[in-house]
Amino acid sequence: MENLINIFVRSIFIENMIFAYFLGMCSYLAVSKSVKTATGLGIAVIFVLLVTLPVNYLLENYVLKEGALAWLGSSFAAVDLSFLSFIMFIAVIASIVQLVEMVVEKFAPALYNQLGIFLPLIAVNCAILGGSLFMQQKEFQNIGEATVYSLGSGVGWFLAIVGIAAIREKIQYSNVPKPLRGLGITFIVTGLMGIAFMGFMGIKL
């Protein structure tokens, strides 16, 4: 239990997808003009991470990793398919995003309308594939840890995009130098937020 809380807090504050690894920056910059749409995209990212990461965890540990196919019989024990992991992960992500889109459209039309075009775009959001690749690198003990990690990374991403959207709404009233308006100031503010988040470094539970 302690271990799970540790992973959760670490993935939100210390290894924040945006401030520490810059994952999902494209949509982070493009969709952070208002808090409302940013919230929608943030929720969609949490949701998709939460679904895809455990699936990729199972795929990694029962199909792709060296020796992962041992359950098929001893002749498969030496097979190493890990070079296929990029293409498998992205295929899983793209198809799950499609599936999630159809399910949400059928059962929660209100949410579907709110998320709009963000759902299909999430397939190419670096944060989702990044989550799976970090999962592969960290070698979690069981699927519980992987799920908690995916939830934590999603929440961290959500916090970051809602934060920057709120700041950008206010920044419109300030007198920013002209060449810096829009993109430039957003980069610099994100950098400053990242410095603030570094204050969490070294937290251990």
Binding site: F22, G191, I195, M198
Partner: peptide, 18 residues
């Protein structure tokens, strides 16, 4: 540290746009 990469790009944008 990571945040300086963002700030450096911000400054490059500033120079380019001016």
């Amino acid at each position: 540290l990571p945040p300086m990469a963002l700030i450096t790009i911000g400054l490059i944008i500033w120079v380019q746009r001016s």
